[in-house]
């Protein structure tokens, strides 16, 4: 095997450790979603009627927020690689705004569900809904904290910002997109 291939294998974009974390997270969420699909076979009507109680519009808008936020993150990385710290910083702020909008809409959605009595104990579908979406929200919150730290680092060091750290943070943020892309169709659309 040549030297470049070996290097590439151990250095995926964002770093090997971040990708191990990403795969572990994807497997965890994946297994929970498979369990949800399996439980739906025992109570198909409960799952269908419960799914209809969810607000698909909120789910769709939140998907658009996260996709757009991911797009800004990718642009931010691109600009930093090009040596344009000012534009990178601008797109990083827009990325965080996308994450904040996601959390605001999720809070509105959660409030509506709690007011309607659709809590964790309501039925099996809503147990999965709360556990999976709340676990995802925690990841978005952690992602926002990481991006805030990276933002202040970028502001201080400008073009001297460590690109590996920046890419690892971006990979974590994109992981939140990937997880949501698995959650959204199964929870909001399929049953």
């Amino acid at each position: 095997m040549n030297k470049n291939l070996v290097k590439n294998m151990y250095y995926p974009p964002g770093g090997i450790l971040m990708w191990i974390v990403i795969f572990l997270e994807l497997i965890t969420f994946g297994m929970a979603l498979v369990a949800m699909a399996a439980y739906s076979k025992d109570e198909p009507e409960v799952f269908h009627n419960s799914r209809l109680l969810l607000n698909t519009t909120y789910g769709t808008i939140n998907t658009l927020f996260l996709i757009t936020s991911g797009f800004f993150m990718a642009l931010s990385v691109r600009y930093l690689k090009d040596g344009n710290a000012k534009k990178s910083s601008l797109y990083l702020k827009l990325t965080m705004l996308g994450g904040l909008l996601f959390l605001i809409l999720k809070t509105i959605e959660y409030n509506a569900k709690i007011d309607a009595g659709l809590t964790l104990e309501y039925n099996t579908f809503f147990s999965f809904y709360w556990m999976l979406t709340l676990f995802h929200v925690i990841h978005v919150l952690v992602g926002l904290v990481i991006l805030t730290i990276v933002y202040f680092d970028l502001k201080k060091k400008k073009e001297q910002t460590n690109l590996d750290d920046f890419e690892a943070s971006a990979a974590f943020w994109h992981m939140c997109d990937l997880i949501w892309l698995l959650l959204f169709p199964i929870i909001y659309l399929i049953f």
């Binding site: 995926p12 974009p13 964002g14 990708w19 971006a170 994109h174």
Partner: peptide, 18 residues
């Protein structure tokens, strides 16, 4: 999912293993 991982996360440039 593939569009985000291959383009936004630049998996397209990564080793075939990933």
């Amino acid at each position: 999912f593939l569009a985000i991982s291959f383009y936004f996360m630049e998996m397209k440039k990564a080793h075939v293993f990933w």
